[in-house]
Write a protein that binds this DNA or RNA. Structure first.
Lengths: 225, 225
DNA sequence: ACTACCATACTTGTATGGTAGTATGGTACT
DNA sequence: AGTACCATACTACCATACAAGTATGGTAGT
């Protein structure tokens, strides 16, 4: 395995961490993949120290499983964690969008509108990956607008597991149309300050988001715990 | 997936991590304290490597702030993060106790009762520290009973910030009586399967938990951001 | 007195050698 | 053939040395 030279904008350890995390969540490194400090250090052209640092951080997030003196593997997707992540997001996002209906800064509302615009463009181009990122950004902006940035950051930890499942789902039918339509309705509801309606939409939205986990388990049994 | 028979709690790195975290949350290492890898390595009689590992993990949790080539400090308590942690716990715990009112395993209910018993004992002995731990355990058992262990674990990350504030509060009036009474009412509500009542109690409970943050800020201005 | 400079003693970041535990494959023995 | 044993090649873990950036205090020059 070989990787391009590092961007080196940040420290080596940080760069390795971000690259590894991106590759794990995007399933370029599938669940169960065996890694090793030495292997990655040669691949990234750095020493074992920054690699080890990354391993520690990723293990803390549950994306790697380190077995002392035995090896390190990309963690299998735990269906219980996926459902918990969905549950967690539902509770917090429903509460947040209710806050948004009470007050929401104009600049953030513009960001949402701009995001919606680009969602439509991505769907027309059938660009699933970009739509995925726009979807994430949309929800992050919601939290930012309610000054719940820290909450969103913590959610990301669970979200890493949820997102690996959603990544699998990309090859099936992501149903971006309905999801984007719900995003639009959320923005409308925030403008109307219609808390109950927004809450309902968000409830449906986060039920749709990963409705068919068992299908994925059947198609990729070796990826799941 | 199979885990090693003994989790790496005996590894030097893990030991340092747990000790440091405990000392930070308990305020034995007050916010703003300057640390250094070298200093801690001599203190713990290990090399810099495991110490550095701990620093990386604690920095990821926001308990340490690492300034490259400059130094490392125990993070100041961020009032916004404290409020966010409270907000997050409120949303999730209200949802969880509603689940508990629908179904809750008997053995976990027994654990709650046992916990309540020991809460009363701790209060009589005026043992604030133990009461603090029992309080934490009580809520953890709630999550475990609803199979939301992973959610509780993620909450802990934000909770570290909230708990440092609560630790300051210990020297004032923690109001353990009211809190313990609310715990009792929660268990009763779960037995009666009275979701709405349980929800209300939890709502009040998590409002009480850190009602007077500004008082703490006045008493310890150097601890806060 | 004031300022620019610099040696020095810090700090974190990185590289590397060595240690101990583990999986594996081959071999001698039963 | 089957089994116990052992050399070997891994692994993560830890200690240590070095590199590079930064704060600090002293000093020489103005």
């Amino acid at each position: 395995m070989s990787y391009p030279p590092q961007p080196a904008s940040l420290s080596a350890g940080n760069a390795v961490y971000q690259l590894l995390k991106q590759q794990i969540v995007s399933l370029e490194l599938p669940p169960g993949t065996a890694l090793s400090e030495k292997e990655m250090s040669t691949a990234f052209q750095v020493s074992r120290t920054p690699v080890r640092e990354s391993f520690v951080r990723l293990a803390q997030e549950g994306l790697l499983v380190v077995l002392p003196q035995r090896g390190t593997r990309v963690s299998l997707i735990d269906p219980e964690l996926v459902e918990e992540a969905r549950f967690m997001r539902e509770q917090l996002e429903r509460a947040v969008i209710r806050l948004a209906c009470e007050s929401f800064p104009d600049d953030k509302l513009e960001q949402l509108e701009d995001n919606l615009h680009r969602q439509h463009e991505s769907i027309e181009r059938h660009d699933g990956k970009e739509m995925f990122e726009l979807d994430e950004a949309f929800h992050r902006i919601l939290f930012e607008g309610c000054r719940k940035q820290g909450t969103w950051n913590v959610i990301q930890q669970m979200n890493a597991h949820l997102n690996r499942s959603r990544m699998l789902w990309l090859s099936l039918d992501p149903g971006w149309d309905s999801l984007a339509r719900q995003h639009q309705e959320m923005v409308d509801a925030i403008r109307r300050k219609d808390s109950d309606y927004a809450d309902n939409i968000m409830h449906e939205h986060l039920s749709l988001i990963i409705s068919n986990l068992s299908v994925l388990q059947d198609r990729h049994p070796d990826y799941f715990k």
